[in-house]
Design a protein around this nucleic acid. Structure first.
Lengths: 204, 204
DNA sequence: GTCTATAACCTGATAGAC
DNA sequence: GTCTATCAGGTTATAGAC
C-alpha cells in the first residue's frame, strides 16, 4: 500500500484529486477548469497534482475515460442480452438512463462535447454490432417496423430519454418550471417513452 | 456611415470580428476561444477587437444573443399560428429545425450549454404561452392525446429533431457511419418524425 | 509524499504612434 | 480606425526544502 489509510472516509490524495477533477471537468469545459481549482477542491496542493498526474491533459484523459465508461458501459449488457425482447430492452434502457442521469445530469453534455476528441475506437461499432440491432433488423424485414435505417430505432430511444436532461435549462426557462416539476416530467416519461416507442414502430 | 465600403465582399472590421467570434464561440467554449484567435480569424489586429468591443465578455454576449435569436426566433411564428393544426405545426417545426441545423450543427450544444448564464427572461414562458400549447391542452382534455403534462408533447418534437445533431459524433462513432450516411439518416427522419409524433399521441 | 516558491509562458486589455 | 509594443495578472508546470 502506497499511502497510510485511516479507516474513516480517508482517501488517498491521488483519489481525492481524481474525484475533484471529475466533478469540475464534468460540469465545466477543459479550459474553464483551472488546475488550482482542482487542487483546492481536492484539498491538496497544486504541486501534488503534477506529482501524480504529469499534466492537466493526463488528468482530463482519466476523467474522460471514466465518464465515457459510465455513459456506455451500463447499457452494453442490456442491448446484448439475447433473452429479452425489443420491448423489454427499451424499458430497461429508459430506466437505466433515467436513473443514471438523475444522479449525473451533466454527463450527456460532457459526452457529446468530448466524444470527438478521444475514444475514437473505444466504442466503435458497439451499437451496430449489438444483439438489439439484429433484432431490429429482423423486425424491419418482417414488416413489424417501418422500412427505415435501423439506427433510427436506437436513436429514438436515446433521443427521447437523454435529450430532456440536455435541454433541462431550456425547458425550465421556456416553460417556467421548477426542479420539482421537472422531476415529475421525467418520471412521467419513464413509463411513457417505452409505450411511445412501441406506437412509433407501427407506422408504415 | 462609419466606414468606407467597397462593393465587393468588403465588410466592416466590426462585422468581420463579430463573424469570427460567432464561428469560434459557437464551436468552442468561452474559455477555449482566445481573443487572439478571433482577431486572426477576422484578419485584423487584437487591439482593434478591444477598440470596438470593450471586452471578450461583451463580444460573447453579442454572439450569444444572435445564436439564441437564431435558435428560437424561427419557431415563434410557427407555434403561434392560429390557422394551422397541431400536425401541420409539427411538420413545419421539424423541417425548419432540420434545415437550420444542417447549416449550423453546433448550435444546439451552444444553446444548451449557455442558456443558463444569460437570457433568463429572454424567452421565458415563450413555449408555455404559445398557441400550440393551448391546442395540445385542448387535445388532451378531449382525450385525443394521452393524459400527460403537455410539455411532453413539445419536448418529444424537439428531442427527436434536435438530438441527432447533438449526438452526431456518438452516432457516427458507435455505428461506423460517414457524413453521407448521417445525412441520409436525417433526411429519413424529416418525413418520419411527424408520423411518429402522430402515432405516439394515440397511446392511452 | 507533500509543501512553498518560482520559473516560463499565456492571455486580456491598453498606451501611443500613425 | 488600425497598427505595434507592452503591461499586469493569471496559469501550468517544476525545483527544491522538508
Amino acid at each position: 500500500m502506497k499511502t497510510a489509510k485511516t479507516k474513516k472516509s480517508e482517501e488517498s490524495a491521488e483519489q481525492k484529486i481524481i474525484e475533484a477533477a471529475r466533478k469540475l471537468f464534468t460540469e465545466k469545459s477543459f479550459d474553464a477548469v483551472k488546475t488550482r481549482d482542482i487542487a483546492n477542491e481536492a484539498g491538496i496542493n497544486l504541486a501534488l497534482l503534477n506529482y501524480y498526474f504529469r499534466s492537466k491533459e493526463k488528468l482530463f484523459e482519466i476523467v474522460m475515460q471514466e465518464n465515457m465508461q459510465k455513459f456506455f458501459q451500463s447499457i452494453v449488457g442490456i442491448i446484448n442480452d439475447e433473452e429479452t425482447t425489443i420491448r423489454e430492452k427499451v424499458e430497461l434502457l429508459v430506466n437505466r438512463y433515467i436513473d443514471m442521469l438523475l444522479n449525473s445530469p451533466e454527463l450527456p453534455i460532457f459526452v457529446m462535447s468530448n466524444i470527438k476528441s478521444s475514444t475514437r475506437t473505444q466504442f466503435q461499432g458497439r451499437f451496430r454490432d449489438s444483439f438489439l440491432m439484429k433484432q431490429v433488423q429482423k423486425a424491419i424485414k418482417k414488416g413489424k417496423m417501418p422500412d427505415m435505417n435501423p439506427v433510427n430505432f436506437m436513436l429514438n430511444v436515446v433521443s427521447l430519454t437523454i435529450f430532456p436532461f440536455i435541454g433541462k435549462p431550456m425547458i425550465k426557462n421556456s416553460h417556467n418550471m421548477d426542479d420539482k416539476q421537472f422531476l415529475e416530467l421525467i418520471e412521467e416519461r419513464r413509463t411513457l417513452v417505452p409505450k411511445w416507442i412501441d406506437a412509433m414502430m407501427k407506422v408504415k
